[in-house]
Design a protein around this nucleic acid. Structure first.
Ligand code: ZN
Ligand code: ZN
Ligand code: ZN
Ligand code: ZN
Lengths: 174, 174
DNA sequence: AATGTTATGTTATAATATAACATAATATGA
DNA sequence: TCATATTATGTTATATTATAACATAACATT
């Protein structure tokens, strides 16, 4: 049994996964859909691939342009239906703060996630943290509020885009 | 010196403030704007009043309808400019998860907030919790991510809309 | 093949938000 | 007060994001 090595795990900032890593994510999605008796169609595969290959989260109409570039006939419902499916399967997430979609870093398990969204370069890191989830739960319970879904989106600057960052390979001085 | 009693403070669920409480919020807004040498115009006052009076967060076009009902000439930019101003002054918040706007419960101080959004009735409670803010900060710093703004929106069911709720005045049995 | 189901194509439109430029109201200084 | 600058609002058009409704195609099951 080959365990999938998540391209996001253990990295300081999210890099575009290699084509091998994308392939691995797609294979994983295919397996999940098969287990759930859901159809992982060519269109859905294509959309997930585009999202996985992207440097940062993509908008629906951006993705739509790629589909149209394929020669395929594609209108807004085409992309939104694919996105809805992928979200329902937990393969992608939607960022409400900027209306974009990104691949889930850990589609295996159901989870709440926190997103660190760089305002400069757009790169977005999905992190999982029980601490935040528990804080929310605890606070909500004091208000007798039943939590169904928590959205945490953190806007800021990633390591690369923070002032004072020097790329390691540049030597750091001049 | 009369201290403003926030209509949200200490409540289990957010109720529409009384007209006296709305008035108090508006007066407070007026003072804040005066301190900052910002113009609290009739339009801005009207929009803030509408938002304060609302039972739950309101959409921009909903608010726009009210302005038009006033007999006033109003187009989308009218409402969006007012909303932008009120947000810049920290008098209202925008919920990204459902594109709505609500009055800030504590416009005095700059703060990060958590919103408990009831999916059934729409009522939304703003709460302030250092615990969540600190968890986010701590997690982000591990990724060398500089936090600028944190959005936490919790979807679920408020006390009233949770299954099994009986209004206190009904006696609780039959 | 006949049938039911799911997915996709297609057209139109809804909902949310902004650009660009004109006019009006307000503030500031002579 | 008047001229001037600044800020706010009016107005028209358009951009962006998303869904409704119905037709056709692909797939599954018998
Ligand atoms: Zn995820
Ligand atoms: Zn960045
Ligand atoms: Zn607030
Ligand atoms: Zn409720």
């Amino acid at each position: 049994m080959s365990v999938h090595q998540c391209p996001h795990a253990g990295k300081t900032s999210c890099m575009r996964p290699t084509s091998l890593q994308v392939e691995s994510l797609i294979n994983q999605a295919e397996q999940l859909c098969e287990q759930r008796q859901q159809r992982f169609t060519a269109l859905r595969r294509r959309v997930l691939t585009l999202i996985c290959q992207a440097e940062s989260p993509m908008g629906a109409y951006q993705l739509l342009e790629f589909l149209q570039g394929d020669g395929r006939s594609a209108a807004p419902p085409t992309i939104y239906r694919a996105l809805d499916f992928l979200m329902a399967q937990g393969l992608i997430h939607r960022l409400a703060s900027n209306n974009t979609y990104l691949a889930c870093a850990h589609p295996q398990q159901d989870h709440e996630a926190v997103f660190l969204v760089c305002q400069h370069c757009g790169q977005t890191q999905e992190i999982h943290t029980d601490g935040i989830t528990h804080s929310v739960q605890e606070k909500a319970s004091r208000y007798k509020f039943k939590v169904l879904h928590t959205s945490v989106e953190v806007a800021g600057l990633c390591a690369k885009c923070s002032p004072g960052f020097n790329p390691p390979s540049a030597g750091g001085l001049a």
